[in-house]
Simulated assay, not measured.
Amino acid sequence: MKKIIALLSLLFISTLNAQDPPLRLVVAGLTHGHVGWILSRESNTDINMVGIVEPNQKLAKKLSDEFGFSMDIVFNSMDEMLQNISPDAVAAFGNIKDHLQVVQACAPKGIHVMVEKPLATTYDEAQQIKALADKHNIHVLTNYETSWYETNVKAISMYRQGDIGELRKVIIRDGHKGPKKIGVSNEFFEWLTDPQLNGGGAITDFGCYGANLMTWITKGKKPNTVTAVTQQLQKENNPKVDDDATIILTYDNEMAILEPSWNWPIGRKDMELYGTKGAIYSDNPTQLRLRLSKGYSDYTEETFLLGERKEPYNDPFAVFAAVINGSLKLEPYNAYSLENNMITMLILQSAINSAKNGKTIQLN
């Protein structure tokens, strides 16, 4: 009996030691409309929010009342925060221009960073972020809502196992009615429609989804060419930026058409993969359809109704914590990865340049 008790005690102690301490996380910025994802996150043992950086004290107080965090953990700047606490990681929820400044402050101290999509406002800023991440050996992840969709994961898996033959065309559509029409907060709207703080309008806000997914699908291929056109269909709402774009990517054997827009009548994030034998339609987070060709225009169709991704992939912050503590190793060129998002930023920068100059950009 004593031996059994001793063995159980040893197993219990080993289990305790195997559990990683909670990730000490700071939230940098509160102006992003997605910040509620972390502020409303249920209390888990993997993350402990130890600080918030937000110079707009009125906004901080408003969200403090809404979500229940203490104003005692709110700091005016990254420098002030770092002088008072030592976090393991920072999640950036300010404007996209601030991403570089967050990494500049965190990287030398070995603090890991996760930003909301896209990685940066320009490819040059993205290169600076990567140089800092490589030099100081930190993780820099980019969070995309579409990386949580089990339908996207299954669509890519089905394509890679040959269900639709060789890939020929991908069509990805993302967007909504526009920031003004869907009623985003004033703090969010102010920088979302600023070309310097956001990098562009719909072309960056939603074009990044398609570029990111296409890089994931192709396992890190760069397109040969990038061609883009933009329009401004809501001048009264978005006077400084585009609100509609079409981006065409060509590869050796396939092409992609990305359609980011702030003019869709119904919000959407969907993807279509066309191969030599059939097509896969990732309609939304839960529904996927597989069509296989029969003759000229006939086909069979199978519909899959899926749930959310399994832990930790159903929660970006759980993914972040697991990557940092080493319990999760992400596949190369996955949606979160820095190597994927460097290509994503190259595509976005090329698309912006193409639309501005009216020319196709040659990459390879």
Rank of each mutant, 00 (worst) to 15 (best):
L59C: 05
K62R: 11
K62Q: 09
K62H: 04
L63K: 14
S64T: 12
S64I: 10
S64R: 11
E66M: 11
G68T: 09
G68K: 09
F69H: 11
F69Y: 15
F69K: 09
D72V: 01
D72E: 15
D72K: 14
I73C: 01
V74D: 03
N76E: 15
S77A: 05
S77L: 02
D79S: 14
D79C: 00
E80T: 14
E80P: 02
M81A: 14
M81Y: 06
L82K: 08
L82N: 07
Q83Y: 05
Q83G: 14
Q83P: 00
N84E: 09
I85L: 08
I85C: 03
S86D: 12
S86K: 15
S86V: 10
P87A: 07
P87L: 08
P87M: 09
D88W: 03
D88Y: 04
A89S: 05
A92G: 12
F93Y: 15
G94Q: 07
N95V: 01
N95F: 01
I96E: 06
I96H: 13
K97H: 07
K97Y: 07
D98A: 15
D98V: 03
H99Q: 03
V103A: 05
V103C: 07
Q104G: 02
C106S: 14
A107Y: 01
P108E: 09
K109G: 00
K109Q: 11
I111C: 01
I111G: 01
V113T: 06
M114N: 02
M114D: 03
V115N: 03
E116D: 15
E116C: 00
K117A: 01
P118T: 11
A120M: 04
A120S: 13
T122S: 08
T122M: 01
Y123I: 04
A126V: 02
A131I: 11
L132Q: 10
D134P: 09
H136R: 04
N137R: 15
I138V: 12
V140P: 13
V140N: 11
T142W: 01
Y144H: 10
E145R: 13
W148L: 14
Y149I: 04
E150Y: 09
T151I: 07
T151E: 07
V153H: 14
V153N: 10
K154N: 06
A155D: 11
M158N: 04
Q161G: 00
Q161E: 15
Q161T: 14
Q161P: 00
Q161D: 14
G162W: 08
I164H: 07
G165E: 06
E166A: 15
L167N: 12
V170C: 04
V170G: 00
I172V: 10
H176V: 04
G178T: 11
G178L: 09
G178H: 12
K180Y: 10
K180I: 09
I182E: 13
I182N: 08
G183K: 13
V184I: 15
S185K: 13
